[in-house]
Amino acid sequence: MSEAGQRVLVVDDEAPIRRYLRAALNAQGFTIFESANGQEALNAVIANRPDIIILDLGLPDIDGIEVTRQLREWSQTPIIVLSVRESEQDKIAALDAGADDYLTKPFGTGELMARMRVVMRRQTSKPDEPILQVDELKMDLSRRVVTIRDEEISLTPTEYDILRLLMQNAGKVITHHHLLRQVWGTAYESEMHILRVNISNLRRKIEPDPSRPHYLLTEPGVGYRLKVL
């Protein structure tokens, strides 16, 4: 896909990080805008109409989560938040507020590009494609059939729903709560162990080695993600 000319808004109060991102993203053909705090960022979104926002959570004025929440009131521009290790609650809060994905600092450029690609592709993809595919895992939504290396596997309705949700959002992290809400309903939002048992069973069916998952990755403390290659 073409990245040339795509507009990226980088929001971080640390100048060296902005400089690094500018260099790395410029090389990939992006147009870069920078903001050093939350208020600037909100103004910049209006002024520059970016195609994607890279937003640090620890901003000096408005919390990054709050910036996300305010943006989401009127904008669907994809947001990738940056946060440090050991702040799972912030990550979840940012995702709940409407962020599309997150990256833990420090991160490699390759990782960032992959995440950006995923959220931007989703932005442009048609929502009702009947066949979803990740590597050798295929899901035919019209026939409700899942195959791995062209071999059909039988899933329970719940496992099917989980996998469908993950595949429709392939590459994107889905929080525990979101999964529980979507698959079981709001009443089950805190029944984490049901989700874990089902994920474990699902892995045994789709993963070549359930101990070293290839498709269904765990984001510790946050949720699950279907890996895209």
């Binding site: 162990h193 474990s200 070293r212 990755l217």
Partner: peptide
């Protein structure tokens, strides 16, 4: 934040 969790998942995540 202790919750019942899958030990195999923990090992898998660690290996990842």
């Amino acid at each position: 934040h202790s919750e019942p969790d899958d030990i195999q998942d923990a090992i898998g995540t660690a290996l990842e």
